[in-house]
């Protein structure tokens, strides 16, 4: 960090200024500050929130592991680069619940973009969040919105069930599926159908692809025809179906842009809620451990519900 700056600007403000001036290294360091919650991260997050812009189209890519999300992301980057767009990528992979470590392998599929200065790929570990979009990812996304990207791709950890939250943080949600991953019963389960603006059947050279695509189509059968999401068949590793996919994205963008305000409102709600809940969990963590021991030692004379009720009574909300 440079020393010769006026005293009134804090370290984080200086970092933000650098990020806003397009400094890639400062941007990368800023992401770490927020992700690791290093000293001053809240200040940086606040700065990022104030300075973010609505310029970039944000695309979320989700789906089960092995569906080819990274390969699809790689090809989508290529397509946007052909159009001269500046692309930012957040690629989330699971962290080990045991060691806390992670192998972040999404980059392997995107190796061709390493030398392209107009592509910024950042890998994040899920760090304890299963499915959907982690706290860290959301926060990092705000920082991405301060950097002048034309397109931001968020490749999220796909579990395939109940990850509706991601839709509030992106403009367009792509759901990548592959033949051989469950049958029509999986399709009928709630969760995955609701979130996708576009469904991708990747590895469509697989023999079961046609059957799978049909099942997927049928699962939208109860929706009005004009509301059914497009289903695109791709073979991402060979780049097949990419034109159709890019066309489908372009087609849904106007509609989704119209929902930006609605999504922004929901985001604010979610953010306040999760900040508060996180704090509550922090405060109660140790007490819960003690209480759990009491319940256990009482040999079921005291129930967890008694204890919880007692704790809830102890919480007081001050209205201002």
């Amino acid at each position: 960090m440079d020393e010769e700056v006026p005293m009134e600007k804090s370290k984080m403000q200086q970092l933000m200024d650098k990020i806003l001036s397009g400094d890639r290294r400062a941007f990368a360091q800023g992401i770490s500050v927020i992700e690791d919650r290093r000293k001053g991260w809240q200040e940086l997050l606040n700065e990022a929130y104030k300075n973010m812009n609505d310029h970039a189209l944000i695309i979320g890519i989700t789906g089960p592991g092995g569906a080819g999300k990274s390969t699809l992301t790689d090809k989508i980057i290529t397509e946007y680069r052909k159009l001269g767009k500046k692309v930012g990528v957040i690629a989330v992979d699971p962290s080990s619940p045991f060691s806390g470590g992670a192998v972040l392998g999404d980059r392997v599929r995107m190796g061709t973009h390493n030398t392209d200065a107009n592509v910024f790929i950042r890998s994040l570990g899920s760090r304890g969040c299963i499915g959907g979009i982690s706290e860290g990812t959301k926060r990092v996304l705000y920082l991405f919105k301060t950097f002048d990207f034309d397109v931001i791709l968020v490749e999220s950890l796909g579990v395939g069930q109940d990850e509706t939250e991601i839709t509030n943080f992106v403009d367009v949600t792509l759901v990548a599926l592959v033949p051989g991953f469950g049958d029509s019963i999986q399709m009928a389960k709630a969760g995955i159908q609701e979130i996708g603006n576009i469904f991708i059947v990747n590895k469509s050279d697989h023999p079961d692809a046609e059957l799978f695509t049909n099942q997927l189509k049928f699962s939208f059968g109860d929706m009005p025809v004009e509301e059914r999401p497009p289903i695109i068949n791709t073979v991402a590793s060979e780049g097949k179906g990419m034109n159709e996919l890019m066309g489908a994205i372009a087609a849904v963008v106007p509609n989704e842009y119209a929902r930006r305000e609605e999504k922004a409102r929901r985001r604010i709600h979610i953010e306040i809620e999760s900040e508060v809940l996180e704090k509550v969990m922090d405060i109660t963590r140790d007490i819960i451990v003690q209480k759990a021991q009491i319940v256990f030692d009482s040999e079921n004379k005291i129930t967890p519900y008694d204890v919880a009720a007692e704790m809830i009574e102890g919480i007081s909300f001050q209205e201002k």
């Binding site: 060691s99 470590g101 992670a102 972040l104 190796g111 390493n114 030398t115």
Partner: peptide, 17 residues
């Protein structure tokens, strides 16, 4: 990974740049 670090792999055939 098992030592609790976050590892990112570039894949093979990369350039130094």
């Amino acid at each position: 990974r098992d030592a609790g670090m976050e590892t990112i792999y570039t894949g093979r055939f990369q350039s130094e740049e």
